[in-house]
């Protein structure tokens, strides 16, 4: 049930998907891996939309070099844990939701516990080692993974819904190099809002998701394209877990 204040806050989107849809968002819990370039727009828009619980995990402190793109954080936050700064910003944006910041490094031995009972995972990290862990835990728990990655003016996004769609390993069997990348803040802004859009549509059960497609953004030339991706029958992640479920 929405409070009167919530009905007012979400009035313009309740026109779009009704109070029933808003209730679905209110009851949802999303896990956001990373409070940086992608994590900033993703969490801001999910908070503003009224996703009832957001868990955001990061292990870094706010540095001045973050501030061209990581719009969760302010100059006054320099030296603070990013998750503390993120919590403050998100609670200011929307005091009607629950935000839980966890200052931790996502690793193989803690990723399942960190994700907990979340309804979905947003990939807002900066390396494929952790992305592959998020992909595996998404399949183990049967929850979606909203992928995004950026460099410079370029970005990519995809939605993975276990057990049926191509997974991150199917799309990227080999990780791209993770060298420190140049980036302009608008690029994670665009990719992050696509991830947030996907998460909202998934929670509402509406629209067409970015599954089995890789969205490619070329901000330098203002071109958006996509390539089809298929489940890899020999994929060690998604085809193994399908087999286990069938067995």
């Amino acid at each position: 049930m929405l409070t009167e204040r919530e009905q007012e806050r979400y009035h313009r989107q309740i026109l779009l998907f009704g109070e029933e849809g808003q209730d679905l968002l209110k009851e949802a819990h999303l896990f956001i891996a990373g409070a940086g370039g992608l994590g900033s727009p993703v969490s801001l828009y999910l908070a503003a939309a009224g996703v009832g619980m957001l868990t955001i995990v990061d292990h870094d402190m706010v540095e001045r070099t973050n501030l061209n793109r990581q719009i969760l954080h302010r100059d006054r936050d320099l030296g603070r844990p990013k998750v503390d700064s993120a919590q403050d910003t998100l609670r200011e944006i929307n005091p009607d939701i629950t935000v839980r910041g966890i200052n931790a490094t996502i690793q193989a031995d803690n990723v399942a516990d960190l994700v907990g009972k979340a309804d979905g995972i947003v990939d807002a990290v900066d390396n494929f080692t952790v992305r592959y862990l998020l992909n595996e835990v998404a399949f183990a728990k049967g929850i979606p993974l909203f992928h995004g990655a950026i460099q410079g003016f370029y970005g990519q996004a995809a939605t993975i819904v276990p057990p049926d769609t191509a997974c991150l390993r199917c799309m990227f069997p080999h990780p791209p190099p993770g060298e420190p990348a140049p980036v302009i803040g608008v690029t994670p802004g665009i990719i992050g809002t696509i991830q947030a859009t996907e998460a909202i549509k998934y929670l509402l059960g509406c629209g067409e998701l970015l599954t089995n497609r890789l969205f490619i953004w070329d901000g330098f030339r203002t071109r958006a394209e996509e390539i089809r991706v298929q489940k890899n029958a020999s994929c060690a992640v998604c085809c193994r877990s399908m087999g286990e479920k069938e067995a």
Binding site: G36, G148, A149, I150, Q151, Y154, Q156, M171, A181
Partner: peptide, 29 residues
């Protein structure tokens, strides 16, 4: 429009009218 594994590109022949696309995924966040 169909994915070709890079390890098989040397044995995959092109045909008249083919379109070959090459994309470098990125890793930053």
């Amino acid at each position: 429009g169909a994915r070709i594994e890079t390890t098989r590109a040397g044995e995959t022949m092109v045909a008249d009218g083919d379109e070959i696309a090459i994309f470098p995924p990125v890793a930053g966040g």
